[in-house]
Simulated assay, not measured.
Amino acid sequence: MATKNLSEYDLASVPSAEQMKFGIVVAEWNYEITGALAQGAMDTLIKHGAKESNIVLKHVPGTFELPLGGQFLAEYTQVDAIILIGCVIQGDTRHFDFICDGVTQGTTDLNLKYNKPFIFGVLTTNNEQQALDRAGGRLGNKGDEAAVTAIKMVALKNELK
């Protein structure tokens, strides 16, 4: 169980996002949770200097569709990084395992195929309360963490160019 607040980080360690462009792909399934995660990501990107006009926000039906939605953004927009936001809650069947495996592998493949940061902002929890705790609840917001990761990865790539 996570004991760290996902929204706490050293502000000074985050580069300016003023010149960066971001894509965010959000799963509609479990939208109470994914919508809160997306809002956290948007707010954090803007807090660190990203212009709202440099953030492309798109929705896909579910978490399994996140990698393809991310690929569409990579191919049809000029974003520097793409944040994939979803939530998979354990149920009574193995469906959870298949969805989690697929989106994880899909995200890894996209990072390598496009040489561009695709950030895994997907909650994989045992129950709804654990997801709510990580979507702006007592453990902060995973969307904040995903946005900070995206900024840092774009900065790293730019530094190494």
Rank of each mutant, 00 (worst) to 15 (best):
Y9M: 04
V148C: 00
M42E: 11
T93H: 05
R138P: 01
Y9T: 02
L6C: 05
K47I: 00
A41R: 11
P15I: 01
I82S: 08
T125A: 07
Q39W: 03
P117I: 03
E75T: 04
D10H: 02
T125K: 02
I83S: 08
N115H: 15
S7M: 05
I85V: 13
D109F: 02
N54R: 03
A38C: 08
G102H: 02
A50R: 05
A50Y: 06
G143P: 12
P117S: 12
I89M: 01
R134F: 02
G35I: 05
I46T: 12
Y114N: 00
F64I: 11
Q78P: 00
G49R: 09
P117H: 12
L123M: 09
T63W: 10
T93P: 08
G121H: 03
A50F: 04
G49M: 08
A74L: 07
I99P: 12
A36Q: 12
M1Y: 09
G35Q: 04
V26N: 02
K51D: 14
N111P: 04
Y76M: 08
E18T: 14
F72N: 07
D101A: 15
N115C: 06
E52K: 14
A150I: 07
G40E: 11
L11E: 15
T44K: 10
T108R: 13
L68V: 15
L84W: 06
Q130G: 00
R94T: 15
I119C: 10
I89P: 03
N115I: 00
A135P: 07
A38Y: 00
A74I: 06
A150E: 10
Q71I: 02
I119S: 09
H95V: 04
N115F: 10
V88Y: 01
N30Q: 12
A41C: 12
A150K: 10
N111F: 00
Y114R: 01
T63A: 15
K4Y: 13
T93L: 09
T77V: 06
D10W: 03
N5F: 01
N141D: 08
A146V: 04
A131W: 03
F72V: 13
A2F: 12
H95C: 11
A27G: 14
N127R: 01
A74K: 06
K4A: 14
S53C: 03
G91L: 07
I99Y: 10
A81L: 03
I33R: 06
L84K: 01
K58S: 11
V14W: 09
K152C: 11
T34Q: 05
M153L: 15
D10G: 00
V26D: 04
G143T: 13
K51V: 03
T93Y: 02
G49D: 05
Q90K: 15
K113E: 11
A36H: 11
E65M: 06
N54S: 14
N127E: 05
N158R: 15
K157E: 13
D43M: 13
A2L: 14
N111C: 14
I151N: 02
T107I: 08
G91R: 05
G102M: 01
H59K: 14
V26Q: 13
S13N: 11
G35W: 05
G91I: 10
L68R: 07
E65S: 08
A146W: 02
G62I: 07
G106I: 06
M20D: 14
E32S: 13
Q39P: 00
L37K: 02
P67S: 02
I119P: 13
F22S: 06
A50W: 06
T3R: 08
I82P: 09
V79K: 09
S13D: 13
A146H: 05
